[in-house]
């Protein structure tokens, strides 16, 4: 299709969809109104299980299997990226070229912020059930902080501290234990991902039953998974020597 034809088709479709959306939006309850039936069930349910952060309760307790699926998606995408970005036959890994000079102050600031970021990340993971945050958020912060090593320092510094196998294992461990904990609930009460740990008292660090445990597992999985993911992109961009474009039908 010519690009003009494509655009015309799109505009036709988009106009239709816009009309559809507009009619739907006008039929929805007014923005900011009080009508939230699911919330009215979810908040007491969270309180019953002594989980102060209701979002965490919904994520890990009430609708835990959603999060199980979500963590499996993370696992799948990390495996998928690893498979897609595996070195092709004509490529070989080479030593990364030495980095150019960096601003001293940037490096210093980076190294100062590194431990701060890691501590904040751990805190966000650990308090995910009592304050805003959780395993995913904290995990991403941890992984980002880790990459300060490259951004402020050098790729070699990052590469030395990053045996991918270990992170692979950490990721698999997090995702796997999530499933194991779910199966434990199944064995104990007959329901998958049942909250089988005593829930403790509201607002404390040890409250919410399985919620903080799952938070930690997700934190482990996401931080390791994000590191692995970025590692593959780094390898692609920095250390792989380019084998050249494969001509059609050529090679093998």
């Amino acid at each position: 299709m010519s690009s003009r034809g494509r655009l015309a088709l799109f505009l036709l479709g988009a106009a239709g969809v816009a009309v559809l959306f507009a009619t739907a939006f006008l039929g929805m309850p007014a923005f900011g109104s009080e009508d939230h039936p699911y919330r009215d069930l979810a908040v007491p349910a969270a309180v019953r299980h002594a989980t102060a952060n209701v979002v965490s309760s919904v994520n890990f307790d009430q609708r835990g299997i959603d999060t199980f699926g979500e963590e499996t998606i993370v696992l799948g995408s990390v495996i998928g990226v690893a498979a897609l970005l595996r070195p092709a036959q004509r490529e070989s890994e080479q030593r990364p070229p030495p980095d150019r000079h960096r601003l001293e102050s940037t490096t210093l600031l980076g190294y100062v912020l590194l431990p701060v970021t890691l501590v904040v990340g751990l805190d966000v993971v650990a308090h995910g059930h009592v304050s805003p945050g959780g395993g995913f958020q904290g995990g991403v912060i941890l992984a980002t902080g880790f990459h300060l090593l490259y951004l402020a320092g050098s790729y070699q510094a990052l590469a030395r501290l990053r045996p991918v196998e270990i992170f692979d294992r950490g990721e698999a461990l997090g995702a796997g234990l999530f499933g194991v904990l779910g199966a434990a609930g199944l064995a104990a009460t007959g329901a998958f991902l049942a909250n089988v740990i005593p829930t403790g008292s509201f607002g404390q660090l040890f409250s919410g039953g399985t919620v903080p445990v799952l938070n930690v597992l997700v934190g482990l999985e996401v931080s390791c998974g994000a590191v692995v993911l970025l590692t593959h992109f780094f390898t692609e961009a920095i250390t792989l020597s380019v084998g050249g474009r494969r001509e059609r039908g050529g090679g093998t």
Binding site: R39, V47, A52, N53, V54, V58, D66, T67, E70, P132
Partner: peptide
């Protein structure tokens, strides 16, 4: 308020819908 109860927000206060927030996280 946000659906995160704590020292300043008692479980009886009105909060925004936590379910959509959980969905958005996913």
């Amino acid at each position: 308020g946000a659906p995160v109860f704590g020292s300043t927000l008692r479980p009886s206060t009105r909060v925004t819908d936590p379910v959509v927030q959980a969905m958005t996280l996913t």
